[in-house]
Amino acid sequence: MALNTPQITPTKKITVRAIGEELPRGDYQRCPQCDMLFSLPEINSHQSAYCPRCQAKIRDGRDWSLTRLAAMAFTMLLLMPFAWGEPLLHIWLLGIRIDANVMQGIWQMTKQGDAITGSMVFFCVIGAPLILVTSIAYLWFGNRLGMNLRPVLLMLERLKEWVMLDIYLVGIGVASIKVQDYAHIQAGVGLFSFVALVILTTVTLSHLNVEELWERFYPQRPATRRDEKLRVCLGCHFTGYPDQRGRCPRCHIPLRLRRRHSLQKCWAALLASIVLLLPANLLPISIIYLNGGRQEDTILSGIMSLASSNIAVAGIVFIASILVPFTKVIVMFTLLLSIHFKCQQGLRTRILLLRMVTWIGRWSMLDLFVISLTMSLINRDQILAFTMGPAAFYFGAAVILTILAVEWLDSRLLWDAHESGNARFDD
């Protein structure tokens, strides 16, 4: 018995066209964080690309023209004298008006014999932002004059995390709450300039795509075929072959399989920071003279006294001054041990922890910024005066060393310790 099946006739004509040209192939790229070699397709503007294995951002879609970056830099340069030299806060102490600005706080630190601690604050609040705007201006002028731009481009990517104007702005709020127990506070004209400078700096850093600047100024022929001998440069993120001198053909720094002496430098910085954190938390970090009496505060006791007036601000200072430094030390110690013992479990967790400490590390400088600003506000000789204690130097040095330890660690070593050939990683 035959089955009668109805015929289905399409209502619209289906047209099949042959592909007349070869589909576009992607360029081969190595991930600078996990060293995976993959094919990167062509990316349009405002599109980002991520590593298929570790999800690290390979290409950032946010990109401004150099002219727009230069305009932002010149605007920031105009704001800087007002943000640093004009009063941020006014207080009335014992019937006398006192003005506080950024430069005055750094000068008070240096004047009291601790120039190293003052230079830490100076670099993060004044030096690094000033280098940022002058570097962008150098790129703008240098591109037109045919100057060598490689050193500036190499420095810009590392400079971003040292620009800490946003953290200093939080420190202004913390210092205001600490001082309000002794005097009446009012915002100064410099505060508005400083807030504007923070906003412009944040926007500029978020749109400063150094890798795209490398592509514009020093374009290189990408690798179009897969080759395990391809290496990625950690300076400019170019994937290719080393030249005859073993250097990256684009930025001219040595092109090595792994960062040289990464573990040794990381261990040295980490152990030194552990040693410095002990006096930083045991010795007094601030000293207040009130009517001839002397009151010393460690980091913890200062947080407890701050909690009596504002528990939320005390929580912020606790996280930045105690929780973050010790968390960074514990995480980095764990990561280094996992590399030495070739741990194969929990790779995803370790990668996330490394990215976390990379982002939060700079916030530990908050305590030094609060001390710097408070020193310029309260300084009335023996009637009422505020000065920093010996722990300030140890704390600042420990924070900087932990930042350097994270920067010096080559994250690809975590993958080397893991089993080879993993296309995915999980716990």
Rank of each mutant, 00 (worst) to 15 (best):
W267T: 11
I126R: 14
M36A: 13
V170H: 08
H261S: 03
L353N: 10
L213G: 13
I167Y: 04
R245I: 05
G396R: 00
R258L: 15
S262M: 03
S309V: 02
F38G: 06
R247K: 03
P81T: 05
V16D: 12
Y182A: 08
A312C: 11
S411I: 10
A392R: 00
A100F: 04
V125M: 14
R348V: 12
L77R: 01
I274Q: 08
G142Q: 01
A56T: 12
N379I: 02
E215W: 04
G396W: 07
R231H: 03
L40K: 13
V317A: 09
A137E: 03
L205K: 15
K111N: 09
A269Y: 02
G171E: 01
M304A: 05
I316K: 03
L37H: 08
T224S: 09
A18I: 01
F333R: 00
E22Q: 14
H207Y: 15
Q220Y: 13
E157C: 14
A175M: 01
F326R: 00
Q244S: 08
G315Y: 11
Q180L: 13
C251L: 00
N422R: 13
P87G: 04
T327W: 12
L191V: 10
L78N: 12
H252M: 03
V406L: 14
C343G: 10
L169R: 03
I167Q: 06
M304V: 04
P325D: 00
A115I: 01
H340T: 10
L154Q: 03
M388V: 07
S206M: 15
Q7I: 10
M76F: 04
T9P: 12
R144C: 08
M36K: 12
E21I: 09
F192W: 12
L283M: 06
R53Y: 11
G26I: 14
N209A: 06
A312K: 12
F192M: 10
M120F: 12
F141K: 01
P242A: 07
R150Q: 02
V210Y: 12
A398H: 05
G171M: 03
D114P: 04
L347I: 11
V331Q: 06
S411K: 12
L306P: 00
I330G: 13
T15N: 11
T387L: 09
G95N: 06
N422K: 15
A405W: 08
M120H: 03
F82R: 04
G95R: 03
S321G: 02
G235F: 03
T134K: 07
V357N: 10
E211M: 14
F192S: 07
M1W: 00
A70H: 14
G240Q: 08
L368K: 02
P242G: 04
L77K: 05
R216Q: 08
I383K: 01
H207E: 11
G113E: 07
A307G: 09
I126C: 07
A280V: 04
L384N: 01
I98T: 07
S262A: 07
G421S: 14
P41D: 10
V357Q: 05
L132S: 06
I403D: 01
N291V: 15
K111D: 11
R362E: 05
R17G: 13
A280D: 02
S65C: 07
S45D: 10
G173I: 08
L94P: 00
I43E: 09
A423K: 07
R17F: 09
I98M: 04
I185H: 04
P24E: 10
A223G: 12
L278A: 11
F38R: 03
C248V: 00
D27T: 12
Q244N: 08
S309F: 05
L353I: 15
I316T: 15
T334Q: 10
T239F: 05
F393L: 13
Q55D: 09
Q108E: 06
M72Q: 11
I403M: 11
I8L: 12
Y50T: 11
H418S: 13
R25M: 09
G85T: 09
I319S: 11
G146V: 03
S309G: 08
